[in-house]
Write a protein that binds this DNA or RNA. Structure first.
Length: 572
RNA sequence: UCCGGGAUCGUUCAAUGGUAGGACCCCAGCUUUUGGAGCUGGUCAUGGGGGUUCGAAUCCUCCUCCCGGAACCA
């Protein structure tokens, strides 16, 4: 519902502090107050179907849909498809899937700029008739010359003063396909000396003999972005047309067309796009990463694409919360990627079932435990959520623990397992390391331990055992592949490079570590792609689509916060 | 160089002429059968110079720095 829209008599009430408004909301409130668009708020998300959506798009999607929801309005999905050479249906489908997955719903308002081609053509004709557009025969290069520079004004095209009749005839013949690509354009007649380049007689139609993903071969002239976007907004009766900062220079043109065409005139509002540390964020660079094999496709779990984040195991809720959290402003900023990671941790901490998994196993033999005994240990599924219940984990004489939970020569403050030391096996007994078995090469192959039988579900009264480690039954555990993903880039700002280098030189060579034979507790047998778990003391993991009935494959979404790493770092 | 934007803790978002605040990070402590989570406390900022005002992050002015703009891309 509409909350906090009216703020006039707010300060008097000693109520809860009002959540401050972002600059877009302030503009909308002004519109509501002045009644410029009545009391309607209608936004839209206008992707070009020429690539996959990324986390930056998620910010825009969340902004547009959330604003509409907040003000009781609507948000359309509109594909901005005016370039037949770049756009494909495959992308349309992928974009729709991503937006749905994020949790937003455009209902039946799925529009395409290409649906408006006929109307756009008529509007172009109107401009010609009003003496505001002309067919120009300058080549691309000549057009560039005539445009001038920031300090030097452009000069008028020799074709600028053709008669309305001639323009009408030429434009119609352009549509009929009488001219080759690039030979002619339709330009708006504005001002070749305008300080804003976009107002120096911009091209509004070009000849493109290309097969369009929706209109097929019906057209061979296509409108430019500037002659499409605002009019599409207008047709859909959009009120606030929200776009990124680089379109700020286009706004005068947006306004010019709405005025000259005398049509509904939305307000364009520009905001700063999202940047993330340790990340690049452009379709072109993604293409490089995919094509040159740095990642395994657009949905590689290291990619900041929506499909990549989805495969990694990110939850839509965490992405939406992240977008809400980072806010919206007009100045460029770079958001620390740990903010994103913290949001998925926060969500998964609340909902992810806990399981035990040993990534780098070391065998432990419990000497004072019978060989054939299998004990059913109760383990809590989620300490943050009592309703998640509990499960049974089998305990046997031989178990695996993680290699880094044992130190032959423990450092200071290390309170896990070491020779002669005790540690708690999560949910089970307190265990003591009696001896270390090594092979000829001097490598540890096995730990011989004993348990205190009187410590199942209770603490010893005569001593305090601080450490707790996870474990799995060597006999009952199942094999799993675990893919440990790390940041794709090893520096905060991958685009900051030395002369002659590019972002590729900052790729993190260790962004993926595959563990082929991790040992996971048997309850994980039969998991389905997309399920998420917390491997206790390790991190959050999701089940990858590569999973088979025999062998689950897990992706690390994010590690748990590791304050031991910090202690160890400082100790050095 | 011309035009259009922008500048507040390390980061991000507030404060709309009246005590510069929150969150994340960081630090310290408490708690804990996850060195997780949680709880308490703490460090840290208005790009610079002038001006208006009792009072300026906020208004004026000059400067500095950053981003975007000269596709028949979006």
């Amino acid at each position: 519902m509409v909350d906090k829209v009216v703020t006039e008599n707010g300060p008097d009430e000693a109520s809860a502090p009002e959540k401050s408004l972002n600059f877009v909301e302030e503009i909308i409130n002004d519109h509501l107050k002045s009644g410029r668009f009545g009391q309607v708020v209608h936004t839209r998300f206008p992707p070009e179907p020429n690539g996959y959506l990324h986390i930056g798009h998620a910010k825009s999607i969340a902004l547009n849909f959330s604003l509409a929801e907040k003000y009781g309005g609507l948000c359309n999905l509109r594909f901005d498809d005016t370039n037949p050479f770049k756009e494909e249906d495959e992308y349309v489908q992928a974009i729709k899937e991503d937006i749905k997955w994020l949790g937003f719903d455009w209902e039946d308002r799925e529009y395409y700029a290409s649906d408006y081609f006929e109307q756009l053509y008529e509007w172009a004709v109107k401009l010609i008739k009003d003496g505001l557009a002309y067919v120009c025969e300058l080549t691309l290069e000549e057009g560039r010359e005539y445009r001038g520079t920031p300090t030097v004004p452009g000069k008028n095209s020799p074709y600028r003063d053709r008669s309305v009749e001639e323009n009408l005839d030429l434009f119609e013949r352009m549509r009929k396909g009488e001219f080759p690509d690039g030979s002619r354009t339709l330009k708006a007649k504005i001002d070749m000396a305008h300080p804003n380049f976009h107002m120096r007689d911009p091209v509004i139609y070009r000849i493109l003999h290309g097969h369009h993903h929706r209109t097929g071969d019906k057209w061979c002239i296509y409108p430019m972005y500037d002659f499409t976007h605002g009019q599409s907004d207008s047709i859909e009766e959009i009120t606030q047309s929200i776009c990124t900062l680089e379109f700020e220079n286009h706004r005068p043109l947006y306004d010019w067309f709405c005025e000259k065409l005398e049509i509904h005139h939305p307000q364009q509002i520009e905001f700063a796009r999202l940047n993330l540390t340790y990340t690049v964020m452009s379709k072109r660079k993604f293409l490089t990463l995919v094509n040159e094999g740095f990642v395994n496709g657009w949905d590689d779990p290291r990619m900041p694409t929506i499909s990549g984040l989805r495969r990694r195991g990110y939850t839509p809720e965490s992405i939406r919360n992240f977008c809400e959290y980072i806010g919206v402003a007009k100045h460029n900023s770079v958001v620390d990627v740990t903010i994103l990671e913290n949001h998925v941790r926060e969500h998964l901490n609340a909902v992810a079932p806990r399981v035990m998994s040993v990534l780098n196993p070391i065998k432990v033999v419990i000497e004072n435990y019978p060989e054939d005994k299998v004990e059913e240990i109760q383990a809590i599924n989620n300490p943050e959520d009592e309703s998640a219940g509990s499960r049974i984990v089998p305990f046997t004489r031989e178990i695996y623990i993680d290699q880094n939970d044992f130190m032959e020569v423990p450092v200071k403050k290390y309170f896990r397992l070491a020779p002669g030391k005790e540690v708690r096996l999560r949910y089970a007994y307190i265990i003591k390391c009696e001896s270390v078995v090594k092979n000829d090469a001097g490598e540890i192959v096995e730990l011989r331990c004993t348990i205190d039988h009187d410590t199942l579900g209770k603490q010893p009264t005569d001593r305090k055992v601080r450490g707790v480690i996870h474990w799995v039954s060597a006999d009952k555990a199942i094999d799993a592949e675990v893919r440990l993903y790390d940041r794709l880039f090893s520096v905060e700002h991958p685009d900051k490079v030395e002369e002659g280098q590019d972002f590729r030189s900052n790729i993190n060579p260790d962004s993926l570590e595959v563990i082929e034979h991790a040992k996971v507790e048997p309850s994980l047998l039969g998991v389905k792609s997309g399920q998420r778990f917390q491997f206790e003391r390790v991190g959050y993991f999701s089940v990858d689509p590569d999973t088979t009935a025999e062998k689950p494959v897990f992706n690390r979404i994010a590690s748990l916060r590791d304050s031991w790493a910090k202690i160890a770092r400082k100790g050095r």
